[in-house]
Write a protein that binds this DNA or RNA. Structure first.
Lengths: 335, 335
DNA sequence: GTGAAAGCGCTAACAT
DNA sequence: ATGTTAGCGCTTTCAC
């Protein structure tokens, strides 16, 4: 391992001069500079960022903590955050949180945060009490469809409104028995499933239809394969179902497959709407009507809040934002 | 920022004792231990991993460098690597290199590698000469469909064989004009596009059909939207096309949409095969026949090689592995 | 079982 | 324009 001292010796200068050449923080005469750079090249020297960071007290990089890498939504989120953060001249590093045995808040993960100048934390499986354990060691902005301690900046999707729009759209177009795949009973709007189920209820109220709670299909996992099986089974058991609101696009895509499996036509027999507006939805058949959660808006705001909190005088009040949503109408619902 | 010194003072012990309690590297009497832990809890102390790593000379975490986050294949790769690495008691951190040579090899990125104990590097846009500039500062295993300097461990997909299987499958089922969407002319098998185009050629040779080079559809970007437009245009211009091999599943999914756009039935009029066997392919309509590149095999081997290289006596010879491939037959091709 | 000193590789602050 | 000193927060080494 070559260090700055090695380079200094090779170039016949002091370490400080090498440091200055490499960081560009002080003027160095062209000849000295030249000699240093030659030594750097010759020894193939690379600065040790761990040491530099320890000295600086910051790292220049920001963490994005997501529950799963292999999920289109988080992939898109990562790409968006990376783009926004790159504009700030910083680097993004993604860490997966649920891979660790203890979960999102293992002592290690928590300590790891110190290695970053800030973090955007997509919370999913975390209870509020656990979240509360996070100290303000570094600036953190939370993303995710659940309530969080008030002291954190938080950006979430317009879950209730988005679900209301989606279900209303189907009810307005003739559906009467709209299954909510991935929904969850309960009156409060704590988690994503409950919030979207609340939107499902609201849409029924608006139209004056009694929502049938047996149409709330709870799912332990919100992936395509599970949704496919669950929806196929639900429709087989209740042939009157003429609409499916998938709480995520993955669930809705699974629903489309499940409906095919039991011989239902979309959108003639059953209309389907998803939530997330993933890119793939515009290219499958039938093309998926979906709630667009304004991902760019979410990321822009998260980055803005993080930047503010990392600045010289961080705001005293935390912001809690809800993204605007809109329905993108495609072929899985009727005109 | 509370440091170990603060904890030591609060507990009335030396920093060394605190360090020993927290790292568990030396025995500490129960009473002292208790006092230290109380102080830690009270001050809400978190070890500074940057400092610890500087001292240790290692970080306990491994980097996965991928070109893009928002790509199903790399998401799945990330999840797989995370799982495999977690079994080793380490953490994975994903960084996006943005596929540009500048992104992949920026001085910063290169220096950043020192912050990790090892790296799995999915190379795409990099020329061999540039790759050669990477020094063996830390153990690195390369992934990716291109030739790399011999001194690196490298795991790649069976590109030629996979493409051959895919195209052979369609030729055997009656297709005569098979478009290769995302292909590239040229005799050598350097990049992914060329390697798969070579497989396309081989399949024709085997069956004794003269491959028509006008069926090699070059694409600058291999995403769904581009593929959709490009394939629709190609089929409109050459109505005799009766098969499409998408060099990736994304391209094939775009092809399915493009074929719908120009009124072609899959698989009756045109058969379609992709490459990657993404999960989504099993759930869209028509379900996508695809080459399975044995992603688990690739990741297991990459992790194994990395572990060997991080061990006490790293192998002197680098390994170059090609994954076994198999065709997964689904509804986008005929029986 | 506990502590003091030294130093990981780097840079800010103070010399020259 | 360059060099010297001190120290970021931690752990290794050597003492007791």
């Amino acid at each position: 391992m070559t260090t700055m001292t090695d380079v200094a010796r090779a170039a016949g200068v002091s370490v400080m001069t090498v440091s200055n050449v490499l960081s560009g923080r002080r003027r160095v005469s062209p000849e000295t500079r030249e000699r240093v750079l030659r030594a750097v090249a010759e020894l193939d020297y690379q600065v040790n960022l761990t040491a530099r960071n320890l000295r600086y007290g910051r790292s220049g990089s920001i963490a994005l903590l997501v529950p799963q890498f292999d999920h289109a939504y988080f992939g898109a989120l990562g790409a968006r955050v990376a783009r926004a953060i790159a504009d700030l001249g910083r680097q993004v590093v993604i860490e997966q949180t649920t891979a660790s045995p203890e979960g999102e808040l293992s002592a290690l993960s928590l300590a790891r945060l110190h290695m970053y100048d800030g973090a955007i934390f997509s919370v999913v499986g975390l209870r509020e009490a656990e979240l509360d354990r996070i100290r303000d060691s570094i600036p953190i902005v939370l993303l995710g469809e659940r309530e969080v301690p008030a002291r954190f900046d938080h950006v979430m999707m317009g879950n209730v409104e988005g679900a209301r729009l989606a279900v209303r759209h189907m009810l307005d177009r003739g559906s009467r028995r709209v299954l909510i795949a991935g929904g969850q009973r309960g009156q409060d709007a704590l988690g994503m499933s409950r919030a979207r189920t609340l939107g499902w209820l609201r849409a029924h109220d608006e139209v004056g239809i009694q929502a049938d709670e047996s149409l709330i299909l709870h799912m332990t996992q919100l992936d395509i394969a599970h949704a496919r099986r669950a929806v196929a089974a639900a429709v087989a058991a209740d042939p009157g179902i003429d609409g499916v609101f998938g709480v995520t696009d993955d669930v809705a895509i699974g629903a489309l497959a499940g409906l095919r499996d039991v011989g239902r036509q979309v959108p003639e027999d059953v209309q389907v709407v998803g939530f997330d507006n993933l890119e793939i939805g515009a290219h499958i058949y039938p093309e998926l009507t979906s709630v667009d959660p304004s991902s760019d808006w979410i990321v822009d705001n998260a980055v803005r809040l993080l930047q503010a909190r990392m600045g010289d005088d961080p705001p005293s009040e935390a912001e809690h934002l809800v993204s605007p949503v809109r329905l993108v109408e495609r072929g899985s619902t009727r005109d």
